[in-house]
Design a protein around this nucleic acid. Structure first.
Length: 879
RNA sequence: GCAGGGGUAGCCAAGUGGUCAAAGGCGCUAGGUUCAGGGCCUAGUCGAUUAGUUCGUUCGAGGGUUCGACUCCCUUCCCCUGCACCA
């Protein structure tokens, strides 16, 4: 009999019919929320990475459930997004059909993996029932002042007459029109003020039970830096003050080295300063040129830096010096103030720029060698001593930072500032397949929020694809009346970034059928936080930052009471193909999970996925290893029925309890591979007869990994379903018999020794004699063990003993040998145990080697061989 | 460039100061199996040596700390991932 998809389907059906994984709030039970990152349901179907992800989560959920937790383990679909829209353009399928077909395909495939989801809580973000609440939250954020509208640049393809996502831009050209250059176009768009929570987002990272590297990535992403904002007077050629400008710097210590300043191309002052001057045309051309370039092109490190003089100057308040003002492509408008005080001697970028345009340099921080401005080949960016810096000369620059910041404050030249790399979240997408932004654009009243009662703003089905933004092609959608003045108005046709959807889906799972509110606060109160979140590292920054932001914003609005959404995060590794490369369609090394399930079984696939390596590490697909997992599952499936139910011997019982103890820990810590090694070994140690308790405990432990076959076997043993609902076995420390294990190990060792001697001799044995070590050697051995820490004392300690002294050289020699290898000494059985376990084993040895076997105490033998006997290592004579 | 992770026997992969010549799997070798054809069981699988022993050499490379390192420190090479001119 083989275990395969038929049996698996049977159990999937029965689980479903009995609704055994339905989660219900129950204040009397401890809850546990296990969540996997929900998938984008692509037409390609489930890939191996998904299967891996869900297997990890399902094992954990089943484990927690069996351990008495009230487990919430839901699944849903991130079903808005670009691929569906591309399919509409390419294959002429409506995104809705494409998506819904893909979802049902996903569900089918996920069911075949045997995942224990509560399917009643499923969400699909493209349904009005879901996205209505996106719109609702958008309005709530607006009320709180967390939304603003601002002009921002987008990628624009003139042929498509449409906005492109970054990944649709290939070599600065449109992905569909390879010869059409992408333009940069300015549009009014919506931003969410994620930066409001920048500090909290940063501060709470330390308390998260997340992988260290993800935490570090988040810290870097938020990129908090302390610095000083300095104010400079802007002057014209003649030195007359015409304006003021601010810059942010983390290196005030270098202000005496400022020789010029650069503004970002987007900085509004650029235009202001050149307007009406002879530089205007040239500078504005340059600015437009810069803006036209894609962000990637502009920001790639190592790119040559370009800039132009603006015809204006500024005065350095520290030195009173007048320096030129430039515009440059390497200045970023959205970091700091969009203006950079340039210190070419001490900043690599400024250095390159200054060399190119022959701008002056001044060394103001000195290393312990002489720096020659003329000969410097790169900026000096490490620490040193202040020089050429007036009153600050001689200070270590580290100390000067604080002093100079204080001076700037006192004199009113600047103030301490904190700057972040984290930017506000641009959520507008000029796309069809997303949540319509609930705004009405009125000529009179401007951007007016749709009244809450009018939600949802439904995404219309009737649109045309391939002609710009599809939403613009539906007049009924676009034309509306202004909620304020009741005059004619147009709907916002931008839709939301799909990260908006995924920022709170875990809350919706808590109460997914609610049509009155996004979720019931009490239900969310019961289930939140997500105790264990599981997914790939690719979402380290975006998704996980947005979801954290959402949680904090919703907390402040009273929707939830938790600060953080995900208490613990587990990152699975990536699966590589047979060829060692990451499994991907373009590599052509993809293995399809559904095929594998059909050929082997879901249980075998699950077993394989989590047994090959620790699940947080990358691993390579291996047909051989999969085969071996399959064989083991079959062996269990067929083997359990053959075991006679009766009594387990003490040995197996001891192993069982030890295994329960260890496997419980292993699963808790995601050491699934260890757990499976131990379960394999436990099963292999089973005899022809075992107790019901032993077999059932084994099945229970295997169950999270191979849920179907264990259910089947459970039933075959005469139990009522469901194994899934039984409780996890507990271990009894008193039944773990380490001596028994030592005996087992000892017997095995003796057998091996006999075998290798026979091999060496190369003849059939006529008689085998085992000599048990004499008493005095045990004594010496234990003395040596007791003196592990000070091996040099062993000999003298041993020689105190009369018995040993009597042996003379032989005793000392033995002790010396032990002292030399002190590190390798292990505790051994005492003589009586050794002897009795050997006697017990004689029968088995005689069977194995087909000859008479005798056990003798070395003391009682004159055989030369007997002198070799040592504790744990009886001398063996083969005749 | 910065940040993080990694380099372990033929392969995949455990192992973070002694119990390690290094779990487990695959592959390979030998033996067994009324076993017909990528089945099952047992054993072996760094080298040398040997009646079960012992010795030598191994965990990218080179140094160091330590009585003792795959494990800690430094240098160096290679691979992967993320960020990418953040002032």
């Amino acid at each position: 009999m083989t275990h395969g998809p038929d049996i698996e389907k049977k159990w999937q059906k029965r689980w479903e019919e009995a609704r055994i994984f339905k989660a219900t709030e129950d204040s009397k039970k401890k809850k546990y929320y296990v969540l996997e990152m929900y998938p984008y349901p692509s037409g390609e179907g489930l890939h191996m990475g998904h299967s891996f992800n869900y297997t990890i989560g399902d094992v954990y959920s089943r484990f927690k459930r069996m351990n008495g937790y009230n487990v919430l383990y839901p699944m849903g679909y991130d079903s808005f997004g670009l691929p569906a829209e591309n399919a509409a353009i390419g294959a002429g399928v409506h995104p809705k059909n494409y998506t819904e077909k893909a979802i049902s395909n996903f569900i089918m495939q996920q069911r075949s993996l045997g995942l224990s989801y509560d399917w009643n809580r499923t969400v699909s973000t493209h349904t009005p029932e879901y996205y209505k609440w996106n719109q609702y939250f958008f309005l709530k954020f607006m009320e709180r002042g967390l939304v603003y509208r601002k002009v921002a640049t987008v990628n624009w393809c003139p042929k498509c007459d449409s906005v492109l996502a970054n990944e649709q831009v290939h070599n600065d050209c449109c992905w569909r029109h390879k010869n059409t250059e992408v333009e940069q176009k300015d549009l009014e768009q919506y931003f969410i003020k994620t930066t409001t929570y920048a500090d909290e987002l940063l501060d709470l990272i330390s308390g998260l039970g997340w992988p260290e590297r993800i935490k570090i990535m988040q810290e870097n992403w938020i990129g908090k830096s302390h610095g000083v904002t300095l104010k400079f007077d802007v002057v014209d050629e003649s030195g007359t003050k015409i304006d003021e400008i601010e810059t942010f710097t983390t290196r005030v210590d270098t202000v005496y080295g400022i020789t010029y300043m650069v503004l970002a191309a987007e900085h509004p002052k650029v235009k202001e300063y050149v307007e009406g001057t002879k530089l205007e045309k040239e500078v504005m051309e340059f600015v437009n040129e810069v803006k036209k370039k894609s962000t990637i092109e502009r920001t790639a490190e190592g790119k040559e830096k370009n800039g132009m003089f603006l015809g204006k100057y500024f005065v350095n308040p520290f030195t009173g010096e007048k320096c030129p003002l430039w515009v440059a492509d390497y200045a970023l408008y959205d970091y700091g103030t969009g203006a950079v005080m340039a210190v070419p001697a001490h900043d690599q970028r400024d250095f390159e720029f200054a060399r190119k345009y022959q701008l002056p340099m001044r060394v103001v921080i000195s290393p312990d060698f002489e720096l020659n401005v003329e000969r410097m080949s790169r900026a000096f960016t490490t620490d040193g001593v202040m020089t050429n810096s007036g009153e600050f000369d001689g200070l270590p620059n580290i100390d000067a930072i604080e002093k100079m910041a204080d001076t700037a404050k006192e004199k009113g030249w600047g103030k301490g500032t904190i700057s972040y790399k984290l930017k506000d979240w641009l959520i507008s997408r000029q796309r069809y397949w997303g949540t319509p932004i609930p705004i009405i654009l009125c000529g009179e009243c401007g951007a007016v929020p749709v009244p809450e009662g009018d939600l949802p703003v439904l995404l219309p089905d009737e649109v045309e694809f391939g002609k710009g933004n599809p939403l613009l092609t539906n007049d009924d959608f676009v034309n509306t009346t202004c909620p304020k003045c009741k005059g004619g108005a147009k709907r916002e046709t931008d839709t939301m970034d799909t990260f908006f959807d995924s920022s709170w889906y875990f809350l919706r799972y808590c109460d997914s059928a609610n049509d009155k509110e996004p979720f019931d606060k009490n239900k969310a109160g019961y289930w939140m936080n997500v105790d264990q979140y599981i997914g790939g590292a690719e979402h380290a920054t975006m998704h996980l930052i947005y979801a954290r932001f959402f949680t904090k914003a919703l907390r402040d609005m009273g929707f939830v009471h938790v600060d953080e959404p995900f208490t613990r995060l587990f990152n699975q590794g990536m699966i590589h193909g047979n060829d060692g490369h990451v499994m991907s369609k373009s590599r052509g090394n993809v293995i399809n999970p559904t095929d594998t399930i059909e050929k082997y079984s879901a249980d075998a696939l699950r077993f394989f996925l989590v047994s090959i390596a620790t699940p947080n590490k990358d691993f390579s697909w291996s047909d051989g290893a999969l085969e071996s997992c399959y064989k083991f599952t079959q062996k269990v499936f067929n083997g359990v029925g053959k075991i006679k139910i009766g009594k387990s011997n003490k040995k197996v019982e001891s192993r069982l309890h030890k295994t329960i103890k260890e496997v419980t820990d292993d699963i808790e810590n995601f050491g699934y591979n260890y757990a499976l090694i131990k379960l394999r070994s436990l099963f292999n140690s089973f005899d022809e007869e075992e107790s019901r308790e032993t077999i059932e405990a084994f099945l229970k432990m295997l169950h999270p990994f191979c849920p179907h076959m264990t259910e089947e076997l459970w039933e075959k043993l005469g139990n009522e379903p469901f194994l899934s609902l039984t409780s996890w076995p507990t271990f009894d420390e008193s039944k773990i018999d380490t001596k028994m294990e030592m005996i087992e190990e000892f017997q095995k060792q003796v057998k091996n020794d006999i075998r290798s001697i026979i091999d060496l001799v190369g003849k059939k044995p006529g008689k085998i004699t085992a000599f048990v070590s004499p008493d005095w050697k045990y004594m010496v051995y234990n003395t040596a063990l007791a003196n592990r820490e000070s091996p040099d004392k062993i000999i003298s300690a041993v020689m105190q003993n009369e018995e040993v002294r009597k042996r003379g050289k032989e005793g000392a020699k033995y002790a010396q040998g032990l002292a030399k290898n002190i590190a390798r000494l292990e505790p051994v059985l005492d003589k009586a145990d050794e002897q009795s376990s050997l006697n017990e084993y004689v029968g088995a040895l005689e069977d194995e080697f087909g000859c008479n076997v005798e056990v003798i105490e070395a003391e009682h033998s004159d055989a030369y061989k007997a002198r070799q006997a040592a504790p744990g290592k009886p001398a063996i004579l083969v005749e």
